[in-house]
């Protein structure tokens, strides 16, 4: 698969020599990584290894955590250093969407959930919003299930449907990159399969970075995999290579389940 990388040299995210601190403690050190456009990249690694932290750096979600900061290095998205002063984090998040581990629909109707992003971005026309909502829900493979009850509370949906609603909400903003933080960890296998199918489908339009604890999931959906261990990027490469011919001992131990 490494040759596919060659065919798509355009990079979406480029992380260079990055260190990250929560207060005094170092969470990530010396991260160097490139996310190619239009691919699915999986971040794997044991709990606390820093993969979610890195993911949350890409849309500066860590700004909300007191004391959390990048202490060295840079993150470029579309060639722009995202921590530079002219970058507005609100604009950044509009272009780098995110789906969370725990589905977190707003206490509103299904329609209002999806329309939230476009609405705050200034879309007022009802017909335009209707179009966006339909498109996003179809994109998230939820439209046929909720078409008849768009104006009912989002909490009436099942767990899997709620997570797909959150994906619909994220893509309604029309981002370029979609970050997913263990999107299936709270779902049953059937719902997981649906979401995975959806992720593969979304690949056509989005660059996706997904954090997962599920090895099979990483092999099923991702083009590239990064293995993190104790705040360091141990190994990064084509998924098939990481899972079949890992270069490092730790990677092999982890993907084969010898430690976790």
């Amino acid at each position: 698969m490494s040759d596919t990388f060659q065919q798509h040299p355009e990079t979406a995210i480029e992380v260079a020599d990055m260190d990250f601190h929560y207060g005094e403690s170092k969470a990530l050190k010396d991260i160097r990584l490139t996310v190619p456009r239009g691919r699915i990249v999986a971040f794997i690694g044991p709990s606390g290894c820093g993969k979610s932290t890195l993911l949350r750096c890409f849309n500066r979600m860590n700004d909300l955590v007191p004391g959390a900061r990048v202490t060295r290095g840079s993150i470029h998205i579309d060639g722009v250093e995202i921590h530079s002063p002219e970058v507005d984090p609100v604009e950044l998040r509009r272009r780098v969407g995110m789906v969370f581990q725990k589905s977190n629909p707003f206490p509103r109707s299904i329609y209002e959930n999806v329309a939230y992003g476009p609405r705050i971005a200034g879309t007022k026309s009802k017909s335009e919003l209707d179009g966006i909502v339909e498109e996003a829900l179809k994109g998230a493979a939820l439209w046929s299930e909720v078409e008849s009850r768009l104006h009912e509370s989002a909490f009436g949906l099942s767990g899997g449907q709620q997570q797909r609603l959150c994906i619909a909400r994220a893509i309604a903003v029309r981002p370029e990159i979609l970050l997913m933080d263990e999107p299936c960890s709270a779902l049953d296998p059937v719902a997981t399969a649906k979401v995975e199918e959806l992720i593969l489908d979304l690949k056509r339009n989005y660059t996706i970075v997904i954090v997962t604890h599920n090895m099979q999931q990483a092999t099923r959906i991702s083009d590239m995999t990064a293995f993190f261990y104790l705040g360091e990027l141990m190994e990064y490469g084509a998924t098939t290579k990481i899972f079949t011919r890992p270069e490092r001992r730790e990677t092999e131990d982890y993907v084969t389940g010898r430690f976790g």
């Binding site: 609100v90 998040r93 969370f100």
Partner: peptide, 14 residues
């Protein structure tokens, strides 16, 4: 819940 706030911000809300 923090998740709800983060979701709003992740949608590009100020």
């Amino acid at each position: 819940p923090r998740g709800v706030r983060e979701a709003a911000l992740a949608c590009g809300a100020s």
